[in-house]
Design a protein around this nucleic acid. Structure first.
Lengths: 304, 304
DNA sequence: CTATATATGCTCTTAATGAGTATATATAGC
DNA sequence: GCTATATATACTCATTAAGAGCATATATAG
């Protein structure tokens, strides 16, 4: 074969695509990560790619900021996928982004808790443990016999002595999808798991976003884009906890944060209804080019 | 604003895009990671998206395997980007993938060492240390005065007592790009750094791939898709070293691998020219759903 | 029996992590 | 002042992982 045959692999025509930019906008409210949605929680804000956009990321930023009036913090590309069921002669390509929005921003879009879509991912919620028992049982039925497949379930869902890894939320959703336990793939006559579903592949995108944000907040200062400019250390901890979906050890968390000098004190204090007012801090970007905010976990109830 | 205004952000027409799938094909030869290239190392194999492709990933896989005869191992999507300089009335969108190819595979494409493109990334090479001194000096000139910018350089390049983080190769390339030190952005009359350049944004894609593979081999068994089915532990170590661009501590590396039971012995042995023949091992996928292969590093020479 | 590799065993230090106990501090309301 | 309610700290301790070094087997070619 020649060099050039590789750039034109078949004799078919190149396809023109409709291209859509999809935005997963994340904010924290009521101690839980939320996403801004349309169509009663079934869809994300999205818009077509324009010629005038210099780059994809900037294109997304500008139209979201223009349309919603929101200022976007930490932004990253998630995944690009094609919709095969689109028909119409040409393909539909969706490029998805995740962006953080500072707490207390005003917006007109509806917000849903991420854990409304993935109730098993919030290990702070006592109800998640019985739910994970249910999931374990359903998966055991599904894998029946296939040891390797069960092995996969066990490591991904933290069964059989494996530990729970909060960053595996995408793999968990994919397994449930394969097992036909979620609405998007419900081909079996088994009872559905609780959890809202979405249009297209959007719930998969959301699972990707959850994985990605859990990984990101660990080793970058991205959480600070979700918090108000001034915050208490408890707020910071609870933001981390809400994203990770698990509780953390207070003293150890503070040790971590303060050793790295990630935050600096302000002169101001919180005004609580009752109790000692907490000191307000702010992010100290000088030292935080690389930061590490994990490693202060509390034990999780074992599953199965 | 209404719900729906968000899905049609401006009154302009949706743009139809040419969509291209770009493949970064990685293999190891001569103890160094290589990529398969076209156009004398300036371009990656790529092909247009076809209507008949069920998913993007499968589309990429099938045409690469069909055209090159190569079997692809671990595959992941890297990044999607638009080419603004494309003109022609419509946009050009490129979706890039990275795929691993097993050592000793036959192929007809030209292979270049990844470190031909990023000589500063191979800390095994004694020449990399003086090169990083040069880079540090150039960056110091560029940042002159701007303390925050220098701080960024220092953490990313492991200067001023910061440690070298091999996963930051993308950030390093981006900094050099911003500083006008690479061919793709050479707007200053400063001498260029050594290193091959590529067409379009391709060298940036390659830096992304390098970052991504360095991160991936750490906590997944992806390296095994680069090695022959049977390999010696030294080969495994050297594969890790070649990707990470740094040497590892032999005893500690073996401790790590064997504690996790990632590999199983075979009855066969290597046939060396001289010396004791090394035992051949193979990947043991049962236990390796989650694995950890870092943490056996040797000290690096300090920079600056 | 020597040169050349590979392959192991064992020890030691340091640092990070998870976890627990106890106590100090600041407010509101009575 | 006392109490309830929070927040904020100070220490300590055990366990484990990670980095590093020293010494010694073992198997082949020539």
């Amino acid at each position: 074969m020649t060099d050039h045959s590789c750039t034109t692999p078949t004799n078919a025509q190149p396809v023109l695509c409709e291209t859509e930019l999809v935005a997963v906008l994340v904010c924290i409210s009521h101690n839980t990560p939320h996403i801004l949605t349309l169509e009663h929680g079934r869809s994300f804000p999205s818009g077509p790619l324009m010629v005038e956009h210099r780059s994809l990321q900037k294109g997304m930023r500008t139209w979201v900021e223009h349309q919603t009036g929101l200022k976007l913090g930490h932004t990253e590309q998630l995944y690009t996928f094609a919709d095969p069921r689109h028909g119409h002669g040409h393909q539909m390509v969706r490029i998805s982004y995740m962006a953080f929005i500072r707490q207390n921003s005003e917006h007109t879009l509806a917000a849903h808790s991420i854990y409304d879509y993935f109730p098993w991912e919030d290990r702070r919620d006592p109800d998640s443990t019985p739910l994970l028992h249910t999931i374990a049982n359903r998966l055991r039925l599904w894998t029946s016999g296939n040891a390797q497949r069960w092995q996969r379930c066990a490591t991904v869902f933290g069964l059989d002595g494996h530990s729970w890894n909060d960053e595996l939320s995408l793999q968990r959703y994919e397994l449930l999808w394969e097992a036909g336990l979620v609405a998007e793939s419900h081909w079996q006559n088994v009872p559905l798991l609780p959890g809202l579903s979405m249009a297209h592949d959007y719930r998969r995108i959301l699972a990707t976003a959850l994985s990605r944000m859990r990984a990101k907040i660990r080793y970058t200062p991205a959480v600070f884009d979700l918090l108000p400019v001034q915050f208490t250390l408890l707020q910071l901890q609870q933001a981390m906890e809400s994203l990770a979906g698990r509780f953390m050890h207070k003293q150890n968390f503070r040790r971590l944060v303060q050793q790295q000098k990630l935050v600096s004190q302000t002169a101001e204090y919180d005004s609580p209804v009752q109790g000692r007012p907490a000191q307000l801090y702010q992010f100290a970007p000088e030292m935080a080019e690389h930061c590490y905010l994990a490693g202060a976990k509390l034990p999780l109830p074992a599953i199965s």
